[in-house]
């Protein structure tokens, strides 16, 4: 599904990703955990093709295709999705209007207005969102929790093959966390893979990962099963630095 090989990337001349390797198979959920500043958001943005980052080495292959030269919209149409840590505001554009455009942009056949309406109603129910939410302007004045729910709503509408979730759990209360996790589990299946990026173990109680990776200084320094998340919770990131600081 996704294969990242020896990825190096920089922003404004500063190297942030320094030889990152990761392989995600069909239907797998991977968690990436790491302290602040370890490069998690950088990885997310680079995977999705943010123009401000420069990839200086390595490769990203998605569904057998080298995506390095592809623009963000082309990657989206291939089935990649990024749930942003800090989604942008787009004043004057309603959630419904935006989703209509986006869904039709990634789908091969356009949905009729009626089909779109039904789909949106259905997914908003999953996300326990008030239908009136669809008429609000995209992310404008949204609370932190509303923004994250809205990201997952978009994911449900777009049905990607691979979702990268950049700290979707941060700042959520327990109810919101459950709803967001429900959204992700909704898509879970052999056709859907996810990279759940998180600072904390919390979300992994609701979205059970198949693999857990620890990121430090722009690299994956150790990987394991879901028990690794528990170890990390026990011992903290200082342990990671001590144990793997020299590797990183």
């Amino acid at each position: 599904m996704l294969k990242i090989d020896n990825l190096h990337a920089e922003i404004d001349g500063n190297e942030i990703l320094r030889g990152l390797n990761l392989e995600v198979g069909e239907g797998e959920i991977h968690a990436i955990m790491g302290p602040n500043g370890s490069g998690k958001s950088t990885l997310s943005n680079v995977l999705m093709g943010h123009p401000r980052y420069e990839v200086t080495g390595g490769s990203i292959t998605f569904r057998g295709q080298d995506v390095m030269e592809l623009e963000a919209d082309e990657r989206a149409r291939l089935g990649m999705f990024l749930a942003f840590q800090y989604p942008s505001e787009v004043p004057g554009v309603s959630v419904a209007n935006f989703l209509r455009t986006a869904v039709n942009a990634v789908r091969e056949e356009e949905l009729s207005v009626m089909e779109m309406y039904k789909l949106l109603q259905e997914k908003m129910r999953v996300m326990e969102m008030d239908p009136r939410f669809a008429e609000r302007y995209l992310n404008e004045g949204f609370s932190g929790g509303e923004k994250k729910r809205n990201e997952i709503l978009q994911m449900l509408m777009l049905e990607p093959r691979l979702a990268i979730m950049d700290e979707t759990d941060s700042g959520l209360d327990i109810d919101a966390l459950q709803v967001v996790s429900k959204g992700v589990n909704e898509l879970r299946g052999p056709e859907f893979s996810a990279v759940v990026i998180t600072h904390y173990n919390r979300i992994l109680r609701y979205i059970e990962p198949d693999h857990v990776h620890v990121m430090l200084n722009g690299r994956i320094v150790t990987s394991g099963g879901k028990e690794l998340a528990l170890t990390l919770e026990d011992k903290g990131y200082d342990w990671v630095r001590q144990e793997f600081g020299s590797v990183a």
Partner: peptide, 25 residues
């Protein structure tokens, strides 16, 4: 803002148009 919209499948032109349409809404 453009990257956000493009990451949802909108081309650069579509993304730009969407921002502009929102602006004059």
């Amino acid at each position: 803002q453009l990257f956000y919209l493009m990451s949802r499948g909108l081309s650069e032109e579509e993304a730009m148009a969407m921002v502009v349409n929102g602006f004059i809404e």
